[in-house]
């Protein structure tokens, strides 16, 4: 427990140091924001990846136990979810989960040849899955991953994200019937004095 609190505290420091930028940004959704969180700078950092694995593994275990669920596999939309899913899977092996959590990747577009599948890696139809994401903003990329998992025959147990930007995405996902758990919320990461504007608020380019 204490080790996990220390790991979470150190992970927060790394995220704040490496992944948070302040300025005026256009997000992929078209929303404008005075800050940007690039989680990949943390999740692809050796120490960051180790801590992400430890902290998110604990989050998933706790949620699964509370809901009496057995989780088989974890994964999410490439590329934000990829290093996180693998870090959790490796940590699961390290702590001798039996069996360890299997990991997979959800493509944004189907492979243009072969079986044109959306999911790559260690996923089987019928698996109970935790869908992973690095940041949830409007929730669209997470919902794409949920849809892909369900279309491939998986059962989404819940969603686990590293950072919830608290901009409606969590609610949108939960409205579709999938609970979202997060390690950090925007306020913990950067405080409350930040703004984002949806595209409708912006002058068209």
């Amino acid at each position: 427990m204490l080790a996990n609190i220390k790991a979470k505290s150190r992970l927060l420091s790394i995220l704040q140091e490496k992944s948070v930028s302040h300025g005026d940004f256009v997000l992929s959704s078209g929303a404008k924001s005075t800050y940007y969180v690039d989680c990949k700078l943390t999740t692809l950092d050796p120490e960051g990846a180790w801590l992400v694995g430890q902290v998110m593994h604990s989050l998933i275990q706790k949620e699964a136990e509370a809901r009496h669920l057995e989780i088989n596999a974890i994964g999410g939309l490439t590329m934000g979810a990829d290093p996180i899913a693998l870090a959790i899977g490796m940590y699961s092996f390290y702590v001798k989960d039996s069996p360890p959590l299997r990991t997979f990747i959800v493509r944004k577009t189907p492979k243009s040849h072969g079986r044109t599948k959306l999911i790559e890696g260690n996923f089987k139809p019928g698996d109970a899955v935790v869908v992973i994401d690095d940041v949830v903003t409007r929730g669209d990329s997470t919902i794409s991953a949920i849809n892909a998992v369900e279309q491939a025959g998986g059962k989404v147990a819940f969603v686990a994200v590293l950072v919830d930007r608290q901009e409606g995405g969590r609610q949108k996902i939960e409205d579709k019937g999938h609970q979202v758990v997060s390690v950090f919320k925007r306020n913990e990461l950067i405080g409350a004095n930040v703004t984002s504007h949806q595209p409708a608020d912006c002058v068209p380019a």
């Binding site: 005026d24 940004f25 256009v26 997000l27 992929s28 990949k40 380019a205």
Partner: peptide, 20 residues
């Protein structure tokens, strides 16, 4: 070009200048 995530507003304006 935008696949890497967010971009600064000025950079985005430069990227799409005259295209719309």
């Amino acid at each position: 070009a935008l696949d890497r995530g967010a971009v600064a507003v000025e950079q985005h304006q430069d990227l799409i200048s005259n295209i719309t």
